[in-house]
Design a binder for these strands. Structure first.
Length: 696
DNA sequence: CTACCGGAACTTTTT
DNA sequence: GTTCCGGTAG
């Protein structure tokens, strides 16, 4: 499609020219590229979001109906940011009096959220009940655990993998579309001996999901693909979209690649953006090959690289370029920046974890003194628990912070309990929800719950079936008396207002919560929040889908409304830091064993991914980058002995990037008060021996 | 059949 | 610190 001919009125043409003039030439080329499939290889900090947002706006300015644009992003956070930017650009164009629909009408969100939306609309055609409920990761694990127990897999000679591991294996096999044996061999070699039992387990797990009318995360992609593979519906779904744009393409898996392909079989109107150097989700079956092989997916793919980095200073960029230079296979990029000067990144060796926390606190406050808001500083770590000691120190010092990654609010037990009640009302066949809810009642365990769910199924999900029976256990008498009428009320066709429903559930659940958990008041407050948030949703089904598919958004809302002038330090896992940037970045626990993680050093590929992860972390920095690691660490966080080991700086810096970092001591040691008497074992040869022994 | 206790084993990253 | 499993009391 020729682009210039279809531009609207001349008036907006000049505004459009103004908007485009703000882009560099590579970005400009990407934004105004025609209809042939486009791969934008965007290095870290090269204005990827800007480019993609402008391209969406450009499409709309060309006359494409926004509702016919599908924008797939990795997180909801990214989707919101993207639509905000698109709307900003469109507002400028509209300012000239040209009517133009807003970017908010674009179909934008994660693969899973968009998939669920399409399945509600078209699922019927592939015999999927559009009233399906969605299991989040925890629900899937619970169901897996239940089946695991019922198949008698708990008592095998060799200990059977835990439910979480089972879910990981299952999910990996589905998403990579590879046979179980192969997945086990490459990713879970210690489970190979259980292959046959795992097959039985997964077969039964699948049956339960089908019987229950529930979809797990993987199902959403699978059914979406099935939708597209069906000739009739597939054509209908394809007809919905003229443009398909995919952000973070390096982190898509083969299912997602097939979905993109089937959405636009000839590739026209497809734009994908990504950076092979930032592929960090292979544990979710993301495959770097997707982006490396994109050019082979469609005929006539145009590849445009973005290489000017707008984010980091030259010294920071020198360091990150050096870190990624060690990577084995990648699309060559030459990142450069116009931001000369600035401080060299530092390697901060700390005596131990406490000194590391002290250093962070000290430097964070120093920078804030010099005008860098806490919000503009972030502490990044490999695993959520790495941040715990620092969190304690921040609390002690009254420094506000916000932690991303790790446990979500929607994953806390009380929130799960509440949503399970709503899910059961929505879908009485949802076994996982039913068992969770029923076993909340005192005196009701797995057996009784199972029986009750069978009775409910017999009655085709009519909760009156439970009203006829007396309390299933003496201890449950009073809870049963309020629980059953609640379920009946929740399933009345005329229905209650959604927040009234949540309110009713809360009333019933409160005494159970108090009996079960400590700090009940805080938990009850969370539930009140949910009641308030419920008002935003049109119906129960969309509330539940949102809770299952968009936990981060909920975490922020539940944490309380953000106060405008509130300033807080950012703590984030490296994975959750993707796509964001801060003036100052502190990477903590950057010792071999954590980065790369000991759990990910089995193969060259895994180590390569750890390198990319570390690269992602370091490239978040604009001006200051500190790579910190404690020399001495305790072998396990909960051991009360003094057992400890000695750590080495991560190999990703030590091997080949050391010279672009300067050294900074972690402590403010006054030699006079340097108390710690030298550990005799620390001297000379024995240290080296122990160091070597640790990494055998 | 449930509730509870003690010992053993594990402990990443997320839609 | 948590989860999982097996044993035991009610």
């Amino acid at each position: 499609m020729p682009t210039t001919d279809t531009l609207p009125a001349t008036a907006s043409n000049t505004v459009l020219a103004d908007v485009l003039a703000e882009l560099n030439s590579a970005q400009h080329a990407a934004v105004t590229h025609g209809d042939a499939p486009l791969l934008i290889v965007a290095g870290a900090g090269t204005g990827k979001t800007t480019t993609l947002a402008n391209r969406v706006a450009f499409h709309i300015s060309e006359g494409v109906d926004p509702r016919r644009i599908l924008l797939l992003t990795f997180t909801r956070r990214a989707a919101q940011e993207m639509t905000r930017r698109v709307d900003g650009i469109l507002r400028r164009l509209r300012g000239e009096g040209v009517r133009m629909p807003g970017g908010e009408a674009v179909w934008g969100g994660t693969f899973h959220a968009m998939g669920a939306r399409l399945l509600r609309l078209h699922g019927v055609s592939i015999e999927l009940d559009p009233g399906f409920t969605i299991m989040d990761r925890g629900d899937s694990e619970d169901l897996m655990g239940l089946v695991r127990a019922q198949l008698g897999l708990t008592r095998t000679d060799r200990r059977f993998p835990q439910k979480g591991t089972c879910s990981d294996i299952y999910s990996r096999a589905v998403n990579s579309q590879k046979p179980l044996g192969e997945v086990l061999k490459t990713a879970f070699p210690w489970c190979i001996e259980h292959e046959d039992d795992l097959k039985r387990l997964f077969a039964e797990y699948v049956e339960r999901k089908i019987a229950g009318g529930v979809l797990d995360y993987d199902d959403i992609l699978l059914y979406w693909l099935a939708l597209l593979e069906d000739d009739a519906v597939g054509a209908e779904v394809r007809k919905r979209f003229d443009k398909v744009l995919v952000d973070e393409y390096q982190d898509t898996n083969s299912l997602q690649a097939r979905i993109v392909r089937l959405l636009r079989p000839d590739g026209t109107g497809v734009t994908v953006v990504g950076d092979d150097a930032q592929s960090i989700y292979s544990f979710r079956a993301a495959d770097v090959r997707n982006i490396l092989d994109f050019a082979g997916l469609f005929p006539g793919v145009v590849t445009l690289p973005l290489e000017q980095n707008y984010r980091s200073t030259q010294p920071v960029l020198d360091a990150t370029n050096r870190i990624i230079a060690g990577a084995a296979e990648r699309i060559e990029k030459d990142l450069w920046t116009a931001r000369g000067g600035g401080e060299r990144p530092a390697v901060v060796s700390c005596h131990d974890e406490n000194e590391q926390s002290d250093f962070i606190v000290r430097r964070v406050l120093e920078l804030r003194e010099s005008g860098v808001l806490l919000k503009r500083q972030a502490v990044l770590f490999r695993a959520a628990h790495h941040a715990l000691p620092l969190e304690m120190e921040l609390q002690r010092r009254n420094i506000p912070y916000h932690k991303y990654g790790g446990l979500k609010f929607t994953e806390t037990a009380h929130v799960k309990d509440l949503t399970a009640i709503l899910r059961l009302a929505e879908n009485p066949r949802d076994i996982a929800a039913g068992l969770r809810v029923l076993t909340l009642l005192p005196g009701v365990g797995p057996q009784t719950a199972q029986r009750l769910m069978e009775a409910l199924a017999q009655a085709s999900g009519d909760f009156l079936a439970w009203a006829d029976q007396a309390s299933p256990a003496p201890a449950a008498k009073s809870a049963w008396a309020s629980f059953v009428p609640l379920m009946i009320d929740l399933t009345r066709p005329e229905g209650m207002e959604l927040s009234a429903q949540v309110h009713a559930v809360r009333e019933m659940y409160a005494p159970l919560l108090e009996r079960r958990y400590d700090n009940a008041t805080a938990r009850l407050r969370d539930l009140e929040q949910i009641e308030r948030l419920a008002a935003r949703f049109p119906d129960r089904l969309s509330l539940l889908a949102d809770i299952a598919l968009d936990p981060p958004a909920w975490a922020e809302d539940l944490a309380g409304p953000p106060v405008l002038d509130e300033d807080y330090l950012i703590l984030s896992t490296m994975h959750s830091a993707k796509g964001l940037e801060w003036d100052a970045v502190y990477v903590i626990h950057a010792a071999d064993g954590n980065i790369p993680s000991d759990m990910a050093t089995g193969s060259v590929d895994e180590i390569e991914e750890e390198r990319r992860l570390f690269y992602v972390a370091c490239t978040r920095a604009r001006d200051w980058l500190y790579v910190c690691f404690p020399l001495r660490y305790y072998t396990s966080p909960w051991n009360h002995t003094d057992a400890h080991g000695y750590a080495q700086l991560t190999r990703f810096v030590a091997d080949g990037a050391r010279d672009v970092f300067r050294d900074e001591p972690g402590g403010v040691r006054d030699p006079a008060e340097s108390d710690a008497p030298a550990d005799p074992a620390v001297a000379g040869a024995s240290v080296r021996a122990r160091l070597r022994a640790m990494w055998e």
